[in-house]
């Protein structure tokens, strides 16, 4: 074990690693391995048939599409929100800062019902789009809006501390060396924030993929059009098709893991590149 240990003034490597492994196993690994064990009961052909049926494929498309879209939107606007919260002083700033966390705290079903009430054809916002022929609630567009709502705090809260710690001297140096404002932003500020933005993106994306409560009210749930993967899983359970449900869950889990892992790698790479 000695070679793993970084020199430290505090003892306790063995016991803390032990606790970490036990904790992770209890909270994450054992429940998730249950999924794989249940799924192991089916033959590969059956598994493949379940996870590639037309309806499930279109649900992947809706879920991944809306989640990516929502995460991108959140990265863009989340950065602006963070910038304003960190760099400027104005009355009501504290309240705005606290508001960012609301999507964390609100039961997602409540958010879903509120958003549906707003964007439904008779709702406060929806009624102005209805005559234009734009339907928001009960379409993938509505799903994206719900996912933007639940994902926002992830981006803001990961970028905020990084931006707060950033030295303004670099920007000032860049400007005094003759960089334009865009150059300062793209070559000095953005590279510094990229790893945090990617973490925020990954967390917002992961959250969106698993989201059920808020989406279900606004989605309309039309098979092949606005049906999300978690709903397919619920549908399977409702038919007592446990293996079908866990098969799809396993696919989602693997896809999410691969994506999160890839984003992690990208992040390490970009951090390294920046340090060099």
């Amino acid at each position: 074990m000695r070679k793993f240990r970084e020199p430290s003034v505090l003892p306790g490597f063995g016991i803390t690693l032990g606790i970490t492994l036990t904790y992770l196993a209890l909270i994450v690994l054992i429940p998730l391995s249950g999924l794989f064990i249940t799924t192991a009961g089916v033959s590969f052909d059956e598994f493949w048939k379940t996870v590639t049926s037309a309806r499930v494929i279109s649900a992947y498309r809706v879920s991944f599409g809306a989640s990516f879209a929502a995460a991108f939107i959140n990265v863009f606007f989340g950065l602006i929100v963070t910038w304003v919260l960190v760099r400027y002083k104005f009355p009501g700033k504290r309240i705005m800062d606290a508001m960012v966390d609301l999507p964390f705290a609100l039961p997602t079903a409540v958010a879903g019902i509120a958003l549906t009430a707003l964007y439904a054809p008779q709702g406060w916002i929806g009624r102005y789009f209805e005559p234009l022929g734009v339907k928001i609630a009960f379409t993938p567009f509505g799903i994206t809006i719900a996912l933007v709502f639940v994902g926002l705090p992830f981006v803001v809260r990961t970028v905020q501390p990084v931006l707060e710690d950033m030295n303004r001297e670099y920007e000032e140096a860049a400007v005094s060396l003759g960089a334009t404002r865009w150059q300062t932003f793209f070559y000095v500020i953005l590279p510094e924030l990229t790893p945090a933005l990617m973490t925020g993106f990954a967390m917002a994306l992961a959250r969106a993929l698993g989201e059920y409560g808020s989406v279900i009210f606004i989605a309309g749930n039309m098979p092949g059009v606005s049906e999300i993967v978690p709903l397919i899983i619920i549908t399977k359970l409702e038919q007592f098709d446990y293996t079908g449900a866990t098969s799809i869950a396993v696919v989602m889990l693997m896809a999410s893991f691969v994506m999160l892992f890839a984003i992690n790698l990208l992040q390490t790479w970009s951090r390294k590149r920046r340090d060099e």
């Binding site: 009960f138 309309g220 709903l231």
Partner: peptide, 20 residues
């Protein structure tokens, strides 16, 4: 059917409160 809700109560809400 424009909206397929997940339960009877949800459908009642869609019809009665959303006016759909």
């Amino acid at each position: 059917v424009p909206v397929l809700d997940t339960g009877a109560r949800a459908s009642t809400t869609t019809f009665v409160q959303r006016g759909i």
